[in-house]
Write a protein that binds this DNA or RNA. Structure first.
Lengths: 286, 286
DNA sequence: GCAAATTGGAATAAAAAATTCCAATTCCCG
DNA sequence: CGGGAATTGGAATTTTTTATTCCAATTTGC
């Protein structure tokens, strides 16, 4: 149990000096860690011996041990998921609160995305990606960046990839797909008209259609041969495609790694890619 | 920067007593926090004054301040959530192992990225972004997607944003920047020639230069007015810009949220954006 | 080779932590 | 309600810890 929490719980039943010292520590843990027992006494208008006695009443040998416990309590607040601040980012939130809420939202989106997809669906998608002659990536808005990121990774493996940010070109590309090909379509809402039309066309042309979309029922999911789900809570982070994007990236990154594991020469391809790019890097500082 | 990391980096060039004391602290940070300077001297077979001098050579007023810094470094240290498999993805890894290692690597990259940047640097970047007349985003490869993602978000707020994936166009755009403008340059290596040249030009033209780059010393960091750092371990995830990209996104997402909090009409802009896009969404299934 | 700089322990001084002493206040029981 | 016991908490004192000074030995640089 965090000492800060323990002090809070006991505050009401403490004697006056103890209450004042305890309150200061709860309100200012960072500052307390920098103060000597005498300086803390000055800050609280109490005596130096009261500070030491306060520590001992809490079960510590002295002030130094109390300091250590406060330091550990602070460390746990940041790290333990249970102690992390969850919730909607709000107008009055300070820096640390925003940071923790953002981190927590990202973590949750990725974790939930993993748990709503079972291994057999991932394996099916992997199998289809592995076997596809050509892979066409489709998505608009934030999803288009995920599609592009995934297309770069697939191209790095030497795969035959079609991707263009212009939805008309995407549509034209889809009209060339056949039964040996695959469409990988991303849309969190599942209602983007361009992505939907492209998926419908690919499906008509007997290409395999993998859809990455949100959990809600939506028209894009209905076109899918294989449907992978993402979970994001955009309301938490001001509705700007942050958690939905992170959730999609979690899936595409996982598929990429699994493909790498499946392709014997994958590491060679990746290494070749790095070597090729290195001529575009400045030489090391001497 | 973590004091533990700093001590590690300097160990080789330290004199014998300092090296011994430094090594003990790196190996036993928990224990060190419980020891007086005299007790630490006994543990290392050195003198008590050497312990204090060691602290002072590192830039602290004394041993107590060093202790505080070690305590903070420990708090920010990465710790895998309980039970999670952590480590390098290897050839024989199964699905679940790969999944956990990937997830853990993402968490580590994001958390470490947060801990290596202090609040005052983030606030400086925020201030500069908030005040800039025009914001130019630069980056190539994976960084170009992060740049684009951030450009979309900034444009959603009604900001005057310059972004193009073509590095020649980026360069031409940089030639129009002035003292009221800002360049936001992303490169994990800090050695991409295009990004570097663009940053140098922006700097010459007196624009504010914010650089988002890795922790290692690099030419791009030297051009920066404000430097934000990212931590990613690409070796863990087959070296394909996964964790480096996640680290960069963590920073750009944070800056975006902080900007939203600073801009009174931000929510209106975001809402207007959603309304505008809704005409490109299929109607709900009936 | 020599002077200057660095290293680092012993001794000393200063600061911080802990304990003791004791007066004032509160609590509890008869 | 009164008196004794227990608690509170600051001042004074003691002990421990931290920081600085002194100085000899070693290393470095010219």
């Amino acid at each position: 149990m965090s000492i800060l929490r323990k002090i809070s719980a006991q505050l009401e039943t403490m004697a006056p000096a103890d209450r004042q010292i305890g309150q200061f520590i709860i309100d200012n843990p960072d500052q307390m860690l920098r103060l000597s027992s005498a300086a803390l006494a000055v800050e609280t208008g109490r005596s130096q011996s009261s500070v030491v006695k306060f520590s001992q009443k809490l079960g510590y040998a002295g002030y130094q041990e109390l300091k250590l416990a406060v330091s550990e309590a602070k460390a746990q607040e940041w790290q333990a998921p249970a102690g992390m601040i969850h919730g909607t980012i709000e107008v009055g939130d300070g820096y640390l609160t925003i940071l923790q809420k953002l981190f927590s939202s990202k973590l949750q989106a990725m974790q939930q995305t993993i748990s709503v997809n079972n291994e057999s669906d991932i394996e099916k998608a992997l199998e289809a990606l592995h076997d596809a002659r050509r892979i066409h990536l489709a998505g608009v808005g934030a999803s288009s960046l995920v599609a592009r990121d995934f297309s770069y990774k697939l191209m790095k493996l030497g795969r035959n990839v079609l991707h263009d940010s212009d939805s008309h070109v995407q549509m034209a590309n889809a009209s060339t797909l056949g039964p040996d090909d695959l469409l990988f379509a991303l849309s969190y809402s599942g209602t983007s008209i361009e992505t939907l039309r492209i998926a419908e066309l690919a499906s008509q042309r007997q290409a395999t259609v993998i859809v990455v979309t949100g959990l809600q029922d939506n028209p894009l999911a209905h076109v899918a041969d294989i449907c992978l789900h993402t979970v994001g809570d955009e309301d938490r982070v001001r509705s700007s495609a942050i958690t939905a994007r992170d959730a999609q990236l979690m899936l595409t990154d996982l598929l990429f790694i699994l493909l790498v594991q499946r392709q014997p020469d994958a590491y060679d391809y990746v290494h070749n890619s790095e070597t090729a790019v290195s001529v575009l890097k400045a030489k090391r500082l001497s």
